[in-house]
Simulated assay, not measured.
Amino acid sequence: MTTTVQFIGGPTALLELGGVRFLTDPTFDPPGDHPIGTRVQVKLIGPAVGPDELGPVDAVLLSHDQHPDNLDDLGREYLQRVPLVLGTAGTAERIGGPARELPLWQGIDVGGVRVTGVPARHGPMGSEYLTGEVRGFVLTGPDLPSVYVSGDNASLGIVQEIADNLGPIDIAVLFGGRGRSTLMDAYLTLGADEMARAAEILQAKTVVPIHIDGWGHFTEDRSAVPAAFAKRGLSDRLVMPPAGEVVILGA
């Protein structure tokens, strides 16, 4: 059975693995401003595919619900249309309905795919009280490639922990953009160079970078990624799907 990805925009991608369809961090709003307290996140690019065009989705892998660049208004509405949303305990409590906690290092079977919750840290050490808890995911199954979905993670130490416990990984879906927070003057996600290093740590055969453009607080865009991977001799591992197209992933 083939493994495919359809990049929707921002952190949103539709993964099909073993016939099971997973959607990452739904963001379907058009470009515009998204206030967070006294700050504003600015969305620059709308989705390539709308929620009504996705077809059936078996589960949403929601890294976190606290920030609109990972769950915007239309994305939040979409969650009530799916049978299962996996994330943190806080996400399950705030979203309700189909949302449930996926604890760290524990798994749940969705169809024939095992989904395991893994750590993510959305900023520097000690920033969790400001950014909130975030979840990553590892998907596995008999005769299937292993897939790591990083969520908003800024820590290569955590990537190493995941490699040590569940690696090597066949396909790594890495959130990048090197987002910067004015609230604590720090980077919140991996940059392109760190994404390439993460690929090495995971021994990933295929790397799909997402969440690498489309928001004003990103300090890098998608053009930084190919150069970073070429510098480490990893260009053959890199897959950057055009928005809206379904791409078959090798492993």
Rank of each mutant, 00 (worst) to 15 (best):
T27G: 12
V115S: 02
P242M: 01
I162G: 14
D221N: 01
A48F: 03
F229Y: 01
Y187E: 05
S181K: 00
D164R: 06
Q106S: 02
G107S: 02
V246Q: 08
V138S: 03
L44F: 14
G179M: 00
L174Q: 04
V173Y: 13
F22G: 03
F28Q: 09
D236L: 07
T91Y: 10
H211W: 12
A48W: 10
G9N: 14
G55R: 08
R21W: 03
R100N: 15
G9Q: 12
R121S: 09
G250P: 11
R178H: 09
V246L: 01
L71E: 13
A198C: 07
S155Q: 03
L86P: 03
Y78W: 10
T189I: 09
G136S: 12
L174V: 08
L166S: 15
V138Q: 13
F137A: 02
G37C: 07
D152A: 05
G191R: 02
G216V: 03
S150L: 12
D73L: 08
P124G: 01
F137C: 14
P209K: 05
A59L: 03
E53W: 07
G141M: 10
L130Y: 00
G107C: 04
I45P: 15
L15Y: 09
L54N: 05
R222Q: 08
A228T: 10
P83V: 07
I169L: 15
G10H: 14
E194C: 11
H34N: 15
P226D: 13
I169M: 14
G107A: 02
N70R: 07
R76D: 07
Q106D: 09
V149D: 00
A251G: 11
T182E: 02
Q160T: 15
G46C: 07
E53K: 05
A92L: 07
P226A: 10
P56R: 08
F218K: 00
D29N: 12
T206M: 05
A172R: 09
I169F: 13
Y187D: 01
A251Y: 02
Y148A: 06
Q66W: 06
M195D: 10
D69E: 13
P30H: 12
P242Y: 01
V57N: 06
A186E: 04
G37N: 11
D170W: 11
I171P: 10
P209Y: 09
I171H: 13
N165Q: 14
D185T: 01
F229L: 02
Y187I: 03
R76T: 05
V57K: 04
A228C: 11
E16K: 14
L156C: 05
V239C: 00
T12G: 07
L174H: 02
H67G: 10
L104A: 12
V113I: 00
R94W: 14
G151L: 04
F229A: 00
S63P: 07
A198M: 14
L188C: 04
E101K: 15
G32K: 13
T3M: 08
G55F: 06
V147Q: 01
I158P: 10
A172Y: 10
R121N: 02
A120M: 04
L190C: 01
N165I: 03
F7P: 12
L23N: 00
L23C: 09
V247W: 01
L238G: 04
V134L: 05
W105R: 08
A243E: 05
I108D: 09
F22L: 04
P30L: 15
L104F: 08
E101S: 12
L188E: 04
A228M: 13
D109V: 09
W215P: 05
A224W: 03
A172K: 06
D69C: 07
